[in-house]
């Protein structure tokens, strides 16, 4: 970012007594860096999150088989319990399911799907929310009224309900033509549409504050485009809050995807995410084949827990005013 064109940021904000990189300074100064115990937990969470991402990225190298490829599955290998139990068999570390699918490999591939949907969903909802927030804040009036009303109403409905509805409508419109990849797209859209509100509110609030500052008028006077100038100020200003929302929403997005898949409205059995694996595995719970559901469940819980810990830490460290 070139500061040369823009009035000095510190200057623009000095009168308010609250420089806009305040959150960053506060972060460096905050209790979080002081409390070593807490940051040990956070470090662990960061490490686990990173590990999950690496596992997902390198799934095809780490897996003993491609669980999506029916040719690689053999029924003789079905329902093998985990390696350390009496009936365990190499190379099936965490056992196999009904179709002889290696649970560990399925988790790696499932993780990849879950993270893909989660990350894309967060990106979409963030882009949508930031765009709508900027629009609402900049134009104000009617446009602002409409956007924020929709936001208010939507906020009273749980994301999962909205996601389910989007899902159902998509199915109805495209019928059974939806293949796995487009299902993934539908999930991303469903999540994107469910989680944009918080970004929009935060960005809008920030725009409203910036709009009345002198430098905007000054910029307009010397013929610089005000929206562009404001973006330069608003976006760095809201980076902290947006990062926090995005982290917490990543966990929520992953939960939402997993829930949709668990409910049978998400990823199909032919390309399972962690949620799908749990739904499938749940059917074998009564037969005592706990490993088919337990390990995907543990993976999901561990992933969400570590992302949430990171989010908590970020929130405390950056301490943004979330709306």
């Amino acid at each position: 970012m070139s500061d040369a064109v823009v009035p000095h940021r510190s200057e623009a904000h000095a009168p308010s007594g609250r420089p806009d990189i305040g959150w960053f300074k506060r972060a460096l100064d905050s209790d979080i860096f002081y409390s070593f115990r807490r940051s040990k937990l956070t470090m662990a969470a960061a490490a686990v999150t990173l590990l999950f991402f690496l596992l997902a990225i390198f799934a095809s190298w780490l897996a003993v088989q491609n669980p999506f490829d029916p040719a690689q599955l053999q029924l003789i290998n079905s329902r093998i319990s985990p390696l350390w139990t009496a009936d365990g068999q190499s190379p099936f570390l965490l056992g196999t399911d009904e179709q002889g699918r290696d649970v560990f490999s399925a988790i790696l591939y499932g993780l990849r799907i879950s993270l893909t949907v989660g990350v894309l969903g967060v990106i979409l909802s963030g882009a949508l929310g930031i765009a709508l927030g900027l629009t609402a804040g900049y134009f104000g009036g009617m446009i602002d009224g409409v956007i924020m009303r929709i936001a208010d109403v939507q906020l009273t409905f749980p994301a999962i309900l909205i996601a389910l509805l989007v899902n159902g409508v998509a199915k109805s419109l495209f019928g059974n033509r939806l293949d796995e990849m487009s299902m993934l797209g539908v999930l991303v859209v469903a999540i994107g549409l469910s989680f944009w509100v918080q970004y929009a509110r935060t960005v809008r609030g920030s725009v409203m504050v910036e709009k009345n500052k002198d430098y905007v008028a000054a910029a307009q006077l010397i013929g610089l485009p005000a929206p562009k100038i404001m973006m330069r100020h608003v976006l760095p200003n809201t980076m902290g809050p947006i990062l926090v929302i995005a982290t917490i929403n990543l966990a929520l997005a992953i939960i939402t995807e997993a829930t949709l898949s668990f409910l049978g409205s998400g990823m199909p059995d032919t390309m399972p995410s962690l949620g799908t694996l749990i739904r499938i595995g749940n059917n074998y719970l009564f037969a005592g084949e706990w490993w088919i559901v337990a390990f995907p469940g543990l993976a999901l819980a561990g992933l969400i827990l570590s992302i949430n810990l990171l989010g908590d830490w970020l929130r405390d460290a950056l301490n943004p005013k979330l709306r």
């Binding site: 749990i278 719970l285 005592g288 706990w290 969400i304 827990l305 810990l309 908590d312």
Partner: peptide, 22 residues
């Protein structure tokens, strides 16, 4: 509370079923 927020509802349900029903 952190675990309550991090465990998806359906996993909690499955866990309870496994413990108290199965």
């Amino acid at each position: 509370s952190l675990i309550g927020i991090s465990l998806p509802t359906f996993l909690i349900g499955i866990l309870l079923i496994y413990l108290f029903a199965v």
